[in-house]
């Protein structure tokens, strides 16, 4: 069994292009689980439009105020750093989307009027296409608890598949670290622009905090452009694959197609990429 994460410093670099195609060709070599951990905007499912087999809700603690005991003195409001519990003259309101489940109000309420309740923070969906199982974490709109949903999504199915691929959220904050921290290999997707380079550098700084093997995939590469190459040489990072800028690829992708299923030469490139990752892991 191996675990590969696909990550990028910013949106729009082609992270989902890499993860969906890699999963698609890997499914010919063994069972594959593709985890969509980009929980705020999961979109891997757009490329595998099969019916969802099952969905389940993920929950988290929120406070419940017992109106008969509460004296509306507002200690809870004073201690809540997130303004998630608001005490008015005759009532106290809880805002689940703002609550970080820190238990502060429960601990500090002088009348013990607050008890543990639960709220849904999102859903985990599963669907199948032949040897490929897609597991999607979907955060509710306006919900901030991405890291807990990501960790639930990662552990929501027994990891019996031979290859597990994880589409990580973009950026460099907590959700990304949660998604990639226990991987066998991390693919960092970037593009050869100053934007791509800047975000790659932030990503490298983030990954260096967790000490996992990683390499770079240059998407939309162009002959004669060595922006990413120079950076990687300087920092001793391997470029594990390149995908050229091509309007036909962009068009097929924009129409929701798996590019490897349409263009055999792209398929070969992904097979080589997977083979290289296997070699790097031994």
């Amino acid at each position: 069994m191996m675990k590969i994460a696909v990550a990028s410093g910013k949106g729009g670099t082609g992270k989902t292009f890499i993860s969906t195609n890699l999963a698609y060709i890997a499914a010919d070599q063994g069972s594959v689980h593709l985890f969509d951990l980009d929980v705020e905007e999961p979109n891997a499912h757009l490329f595998f439009p099969e019916r969802v087999r099952d969905s389940r809700a993920v929950r988290r603690m929120i406070p419940i105020v017992n109106a008969e005991i509460c004296d509306h003195k507002g200690i809870c409001t004073q201690v809540c750093e997130y303004h998630a519990i608001i005490s008015l003259a005759t009532t106290t309101m809880v805002f689940p989307e703002l609550c970080h489940s820190c238990y502060g109000c429960l601990e500090l309420c002088p009348t013990r009027a607050i008890s543990e309740g639960f709220k849904e923070i999102g859903k985990i969906h599963r669907s199948d296409t032949g040897g490929l199982h897609l597991i999607t974490g979907e955060l509710k709109v306006g919900e901030s608890a991405a890291p807990s949903l990501i960790s639930e999504t990662k552990t929501s199915v027994p990891q019996e598949a031979q290859i597990n691929i994880y589409d990580a959220p973009p950026g460099t904050s907590c959700p990304v670290i949660e998604a990639v921290k226990d991987m066998d290999y991390i693919i960092l997707v970037t593009e050869p622009t100053p934007f791509g380079l800047h975000d790659l550098d932030l990503m490298v700084q983030t990954i260096n905090q967790i000490d996992r093997p990683y390499g770079v995939v240059v998407n939309k590469s162009q002959a004669g452009n060595n922006l990413i190459e120079s950076y990687c040489t300087e920092h001793g990072i391997e470029i594990i694959a390149r995908f050229a800028q091509d309007i036909n690829i962009a068009r097929a992708y924009a129409q929701g197609k798996i590019v490897s299923a349409v263009f055999p030469e792209i398929r070969t490139r992904f097979e080589t990429l997977l083979q290289r990752i296997r070699e790097r892991m031994i």
Binding site: T77, C80, Y82, H83, A84, I86, S87, L88, A89, F95, E97, L98, S144
Partner: peptide, 27 residues
């Protein structure tokens, strides 16, 4: 975070009956 709910509490505690503004979030 939570600038909206906290401001709403401030307005309520000031004894205000009507608020004129741009957009108030759902919370």
């Amino acid at each position: 975070h939570g600038a909206g709910t906290s401001s709403a509490q401030m307005i309520a505690n000031a004894g205000v009956s009507a608020l004129v503004t741009g957009k108030v979030g759902p919370k």
